[in-house]
């Protein structure tokens, strides 16, 4: 069983559209949507949720105003500026409150509080799901608004997708990754067999591709590239190809800019099921190349 992640560094280059097309083209696979704070894959795969689980991670701290004597020791030790004195309009005295959004749950305030007035509350950060789609199983999640621990949720999604793939004897786990290079990206990328980097021929796209290739190298993951909307700037497309050649990274294909991609998206279907020429042909070729790359590599 091989794990393939689709990432990009820069957002909006076409990761999810390509992942959904792979879901339609590939056989014997499980999909995982690891863009847990702005998940979109479900809009194309239309999952029927079979299992729903709570995602609890980390802690939040709360002050018991009955016990608090406003000594301010907690404010002193908090490194995240999450605790402040608050002038209430109703009560005459100041009140100390913890801003749950800034709180990173280290709990040091609770440990130093002489009055034992700060309590730890386990944090419900989101939900994750195992769903059926017409393409196979999808594991996906929703991180609560303004929540932390996206990396842990990504790991949980991946772990479950992998388990399903193993139990059902599947050949691939196809992972839709988040943008950026930080914690959820690292969690999506680490230990996969292949990372397909989707870039576009813009200076931003190139810059971000170079950074995400750096991350893949850092974690020892083999990376290949595909260029989306390549004909919007042929000169930049050429620079990408040259860069890849120089870095010994294979370009899997070049997808032209075509409004059919948006038309398919508006209809909520993978583009390869909506149109048969141009874009779809190229995505099919890319999938074949990605697949043979994976099959060649020894697990």
């Amino acid at each position: 069983m091989k794990q393939i992640v689709i990432i990009s560094g820069k957002g909006g280059t076409g990761k999810t559209i390509i992942t959904a097309s792979f879901a339609s083209l590939a056989e014997n696979k499980v999909m995982a949507d690891c863009d847990v704070d702005a998940a979109d894959l479900h809009l194309l795969l239309h999952p029927e949720i079979k299992e729903k689980h709570e995602f609890r991670a980390g802690n939040k701290l709360v002050i018991d105003p009955q016990k608090c004597n406003q000594c301010g020791k907690c404010i002193e030790v908090c490194r995240f500026d999450a605790i402040s004195e608050h002038q209430s309009t109703r009560a005459p005295e100041h009140q100390i409150i913890i801003d749950s959004i800034s709180c990173e749950g280290c709990g040091i305030c609770a440990k130093v509080c002489p009055e034992d007035a700060i309590m730890t509350k386990e944090n419900l950060c989101g939900e994750w799901y195992i769903s059926d789609t017409k393409y196979g199983s999808l594991v996906h999640a929703r991180l609560g608004i303004a929540e932390e621990n996206s990396g842990k949720l990504v790991s949980l999604v991946r772990q479950n997708a992998k388990t399903i793939a193993e139990n059902k004897n599947m050949d691939y786990v196809i992972i839709d990754g988040p943008p950026g290079i930080g914690c959820p990206v690292i969690a999506s990328l680490s230990g996969v067999d292949l990372a397909l980097i989707v870039t576009e021929p813009t200076l931003s796209g190139i810059h971000d591709m170079e950074r995400i290739i750096g991350v893949a190298n850092h974690f020892g993951v083999k990376a290949v590239v595909c260029i989306n909307k390549y004909d919007l700037n042929l000169e930049n497309t050429q620079s990408i190809e040259e860069y890849c050649q120089g870095s010994n990274i294979e370009v899997m294909g070049k997808i032209p800019f075509d409004k059919v991609v948006i038309e398919a998206l508006v209809r909520g279907i993978p583009v390869v099921e909506y149109s048969k020429d141009g874009v779809s042909e190229e995505i099919e070729k890319i999938w074949e190349r990605v697949r043979s790359h994976c099959d060649e590599s020894v697990s």
Binding site: I101, A146, S150, P178, P184
Partner: peptide, 10 residues
């Protein structure tokens, strides 16, 4: 601002 809705965005 970076994309998303999690801690870096906040």
């Amino acid at each position: 601002v970076p994309p998303g809705t999690s801690c870096p965005v906040i």
